[in-house]
């Protein structure tokens, strides 16, 4: 397990920034930045990542607080859903042509 970009010690820690582009959408990862604390991280994020009207809401999270899945375990981690096509509507072909289904 690791944190994105959180490998070195800097005077100001690294934060990950998530921006909601407009109401009704999820917050999406926009990038990261440095800030001494959460309050300034939020403000820096506003200044850096919404200069062109890109957002209506912002989340900031210390990079070190993010836990990622282990890339070396990728196969084991993400194997299970493969081959289970019956979870998708496209699997069910017999109903083709029938309306409102």
């Amino acid at each position: 397990m690791s944190s994105p970009g959180g490998t070195e010690h800097d005077t100001w820690p690294l934060w990950e920034v998530f921006v909601r582009a407009s109401r009704g959408l999820s917050h999406l990862h926009a990038g990261s930045l440095h800030a001494p604390d959460a309050e300034l991280a939020l403000r820096n994020a506003r200044d850096l990542y919404t200069r062109r009207n890109e957002g209506v809401s912002i989340w900031v999270v210390p990079s070190s607080e993010i836990t990622t899945s282990d890339p070396d375990e990728k196969d084991a981690f993400f194997e299970s859903p493969k081959g289970k096509r019956y979870r998708h509507a496209s699997y069910y072909t017999e109903a083709e042509g029938v309306k409102h289904l």
Partner: peptide, 11 residues
């Protein structure tokens, strides 16, 4: 930030 993901610090 992109460089930092490779394990080098801003400082």
């Amino acid at each position: 930030s992109a460089a930092q993901t490779l394990g080098i610090g801003r400082d």
